[in-house]
Each structure stands twice: as C-alpha cells, then as structure tokens.
C-alpha cells in the first residue's frame, strides 16, 4: 500500500520509513542526555526527528531545543496524562501520531528517536511504536540493578549503563554490573558511557548507526510499490 500524503491517518508498515528507536529507562538516568548526544553524533550524517514524552512539562523537549543539537521543529512533545508507561506500551496512539507527523513534515527521515517519560524497570516500548529500543540505567542506582533484571534490562536491544564517571563516588562496581547484565541479557549488547565526559556518546552512536544501516537495507523503499 502506498502512503497517501493527503491522509494523515496512515500506519506505514516499515517500508520507506525511518527506523523508530525507543529510549527508555528510569527518570534521571540520562535518556535526554543520550538523545542529545545521538543528535550531536548522528545529526551530520542522518536525517533525524525526536519525540519526547515528558511527564509534566515540555522540559525535555525544551532542553533539546536549547541544546541546539537539532532543528527545534523536529522535536515533538507528547503529553502522557500521568501514565508515561501507557503512552509507550499500551496506548501508543499519540506517539505514533507524533512520529508520523514528523515523517510527513520533514520526511524522508532516517531515524526517529522516541524518549520515554521515565519508567520503572518493567517498562518497555511496544513493537508497534519502536523498532529497536535502548534501555538506559545509571550507576547511581547501585550496581545491583542489572541483576534485578526486569523487561527493560533483559529485553532491550541495547542496555546502556550511564554516568560511569560517578561509579567511584557511589561505590558501584562496573565489573559486577557488566557480568550481571551479560547473564540476564542472553548475549545482547551492553555499553558503559559517561555522557558527561563523552558528549557524543560515541559507542552508542556507532551501535545506532549500524542498526539504521541494516534497517535501511531490509526496508529500502521500492519506488514501484
């Protein structure tokens, strides 16, 4: 089915559209910082859009706009009515609408990042919204968090453990975190970052670029379809 550009109710099936990347994780772990870092590193080579799910205000969207890492119009904020989990998992309609609005306005895009409003460890993105997802933890929650698991930690396509610069201060043992995460994640990748020190989160950006690349190959738009 070809997209009808006069009809803003489309539900594209993945062909010829951007990869949708969910970034989830507890409040304060560095999701917005990571989003900004990815825009910084990938902005020059990929066409980007960002959807934020702020809990209260448009703070995350405003932060990203001020950070100047992406054209402010390419950031859309979604309100979640007290339920950030609902908006990324059970009722994704508003987020899908935001993503499709961005694609329609600025498309074609390569990557749309959807930052969740901040979750507990059980929250994951619906496959109807995110094609791939990153779960962001930080070391200050303690080094036991990966062991506790939860769908976010175990099933995300990439687990990011952020704020490694704080590890000595909070007494978190990164080798323990690394070993526990590997044990519950069945071989899926884990990356340690300090976005404070590496403002482009280069290891994560590299992973994302790889994912976008293979998405493009799998879903390249056939102009005959």
């Amino acid at each position: 089915m070809s997209a009808n550009h006069d009809d803003h109710h489309d539900a594209p099936d993945g062909h010829g559209r951007a990869l949708r990347l969910g970034i989830g994780g507890p409040v304060g772990s560095g999701k917005t910082a990571l989003t900004a870092a990815l825009c910084r590193s990938l902005g020059p080579s990929l066409r980007l859009g960002v959807v934020t799910n702020d809990i209260y205000t448009t703070e995350d969207a405003d932060f990203l706009r001020r950070a100047g890492v992406i054209d402010p119009d390419r950031i859309m904020a979604v309100q979640t009515g007290c339920c950030p989990h609902t908006a990324i998992r059970d009722d994704i309609a508003a987020n899908v609408d935001a993503v499709e609005t961005l694609e329609e306005r600025f498309g074609p895009l390569d990557l749309v990042i959807v930052e969740s409003g901040g979750d507990n460890l059980t929250a994951t993105f619906s496959r109807g919204l995110a094609d791939r997802q990153i779960f962001v933890l930080d070391v200050s929650g303690g080094d036991k968090v990966p062991r506790k698991g939860g769908p976010g930690v175990t099933s995300a396509d990439l687990l990011v453990v952020n704020k490694t610069d704080l590890a000595p201060m909070v007494g978190a043992d990164l080798t323990v975190m690394s070993r526990d995460a590997a044990a519950v994640r069945d071989g899926k990748p884990v990356l340690f970052t300090s976005i404070r020190e590496d403002r482009g989160a280069h290891s994560v950006a590299e992973w994302v670029a790889g994912v976008v690349d293979s998405w493009r190959h799998q879903h390249s738009h056939s102009h005959l379809s």
């Binding site: 309100q79 979640t80 009515g81 339920c83 609902t86 908006a87 009722d91 994704i92 508003a94 609408d97």
Partner: peptide, 11 residues
Amino acid sequence: SRLPAGGHAHS
C-alpha cells in the same frame, strides 16, 4: 478506556 486511541491523555 484501554482502546489504544490516545484517550488516556485527555482530561
């Protein structure tokens, strides 16, 4: 209210 059509975010 579980119909996934965005209603949960409107008061």
